[in-house]
């Protein structure tokens, strides 16, 4: 019984070590391909468009309502204590440092990361990766590096966009539902927030992009066993990315504060 339990814990630990080892190994290959740069530019542009530009509508929608919801949630207290001078600052601080990066990171992982894992995994099981290698093309240079770069850059840019939209949403909902005028919102926002609040969140965005890109690529290219394997890989990739995001969020917040 206890032996069984220990064996299972040991097995899970080994499986985890295998995945972490795989991600780290992939990271090294990506770094080697970057100096000097030996990746496919066309693939980079194509992925930046597909992963970034096509994500803009959903990011705008989520960010706008997230900003709004934060104001709605706090409007009860704002009205009760007459704390209208805190709304701009509160919304900005929370969005820039935490809510923006983490929400968009998870969103990005769900939309772009899972898609990426499924795509690479399908390429493995339909022998397309072997096909590339047989044509003397390094799949890491050709497929992985452009995707990793595209995801890091695009999540970073999307987070900037999302931050702005969320603040606009907060200001609008503040005006409509909490009787906070734009002017009051702006004063509170601009006088209390510092550029470090923004950069704090953007550091997170870059790290999250890095995590989502590496995990989604790794789980994609290590798919085994047909369509079922692809499904499992997508699942694992999203879970691993979410864990990675939360964990690194904690570490960054702790070290940067």
């Amino acid at each position: 019984m206890i032996g069984n339990l220990l064996a299972r814990i040991g097995g899970a630990f080994l499986a985890l070590a295998h995945e972490v080892g795989g991600v780290v190994h992939l990271l090294f290959k990506v770094l080697i391909a970057l100096v000097p740069p030996r990746f496919d530019r066309d693939e980079l542009w194509r992925n930046m468009y597909k992963m970034g530009v096509r994500s803009v509508p959903i990011i705008i929608l989520t960010a706008f309502f997230t900003g709004g919801i934060m104001v709605i949630q706090s409007s009860v207290f704002v009205k009760k204590f007459g704390a209208t001078s805190l709304v701009g600052w509160g919304a900005g601080y929370a969005v820039f440092r935490e809510v923006g990066p983490i929400l968009l990171g998870l969103m990005f992982s769900g939309r772009v990361g899972s898609n990426n894992t499924a795509e690479l995994g399908t390429m493995v099981i339909t022998e397309q990766i072997d096909g590339l290698r047989a044509l003397a093309i390094d799949p890491v240079n050709y497929l992985i590096v452009p995707r990793v770069l595209a995801m890091i850059v695009m999540l970073f840019l999307l987070t900037i966009l999302g931050d702005i939209v969320a603040i606009v949403g907060a200001a609008l909902f503040g005006q409509l539902l909490a009787d906070v005028s734009f002017a009051a919102f702006w004063t509170s926002f601009s006088q209390n927030l510092h550029i470090v609040d923004l950069t704090h969140g953007l550091v997170k965005a870059a790290v999250f992009g890095f995590i989502v890109s590496l995990t989604s690529c790794w789980f994609g290219i290590s798919v085994r066993g047909g369509a079922v394997g692809v499904g499992r890989a997508v699942n694992n990739s999203v879970v691993a990315a979410a864990l990675g995001i939360v964990l690194s969020d904690y570490i960054i917040t702790y070290t940067l504060s």
Partner: peptide, 10 residues
């Protein structure tokens, strides 16, 4: 090489 599953790039 022609692969068994064709391996066409989709």
């Amino acid at each position: 090489m022609l692969f068994q599953n064709n391996a066409l790039f989709d």
